[in-house]
Amino acid sequence: MSKKMNFVPDLLPKPAPKARAKEGEVGRRSFIKLLSALTAGAIAMPDKAEAFNLDEFLQKHFHQMTDEEKQKTMARLEGEYNKKYSRDDFSVADGGPQHGVKYGYALNLSKCIGCRKCTHACVDENNQHRGSEERGDQIEYIRVLEMEKGSLDVEKSVHDYTHEVPAEGKYYMPVQCHQCNDAPCVKACPVEATWQEPDGIVVVDYNWCIGCRYCAAACPYWARKFNWVAPRIPDEEVNPDTHYLGNRPRYKGVMEKCTFCITRVRKGLNPACHDICPTGSRKFGNLLDKESVVRRIIDQKRIFILKEEVGTDPSFYYFFD
């Protein structure tokens, strides 16, 4: 048996960072898991929340559900999430877009110091997979690039800097989903599991995505993130205030992405990354409102669009001042 395990080294579930104190026990448990998986067939799924679920299997595309079906589905999901994360306060909403609103984001590159606070606030708000230390596979929607002063070439950027910031001769460029108006990811998806909402937010139906990852190949901003394993969120860290098209917990094998914090912005709040930013580099608002802060920036500052030549017409702008 141990020989077999060596041959297939990555089959064993990677121990979560906290559980790693008891190495031996984890090893034994995964050994039993592996055995039962081998013998008992499909019933022995590693995680009971992942077991086959007929309602989920037959669940329709978000656009094909009637309002009544949506309510039923969301109630079912709330029950499932409550059980999975041992709580009783889960809420899955489906608040729609507001009329006359189109969200836009502007980021001040002169101010950003590359502290990655936005990245982490985003993970907390949006219930991303926390990953495990040795795999380093926490899902993050925001990637902060350390750029050479005087260059806009992302290929010269450093992603995994650990030194103190801001460093001499560098500037910092956070990149997240640009909510493109001509979105390559939307065009690519073979099953319409991803689309742009009227307020500009590009969303994914996690119950419709088949996990082909064509959208990930299509996105020019590397903004689509895939659940390579069953996502893990510690019970006490989960955010129970969720949206069907946004931060509700996801499944193994589906795609996810930044939604400008759809749960928050559709309630009139700002995205979590905006509120956490200690330097005020992030400006968010309604592009259709001439008085909004983003609109004023676009109208008055020197803005630029990353990878403009790809022609995706994003709702995300960078500026210097």
């Binding site: 299997f57 595309h61 656009h63 094909q64 998806c189 073979p190 099953v191 319409e192 599991a193 419709w208 995505c209 088949i210 996990g211 082909c212 990852r213 895939f226 659940n227 499944y251 193994k252 094998g253 589906v254 795609m255």
Partner: peptide, 20 residues
């Protein structure tokens, strides 16, 4: 084999699914 959700393959089959 490359699909994350092979159980949802029927999403590609019209008229049940939604074929882009």
């Amino acid at each position: 084999a490359d699909l994350g959700r092979p159980d949802r393959m029927w999403h590609m089959i019209p008229p049940f699914g939604k074929f882009n």
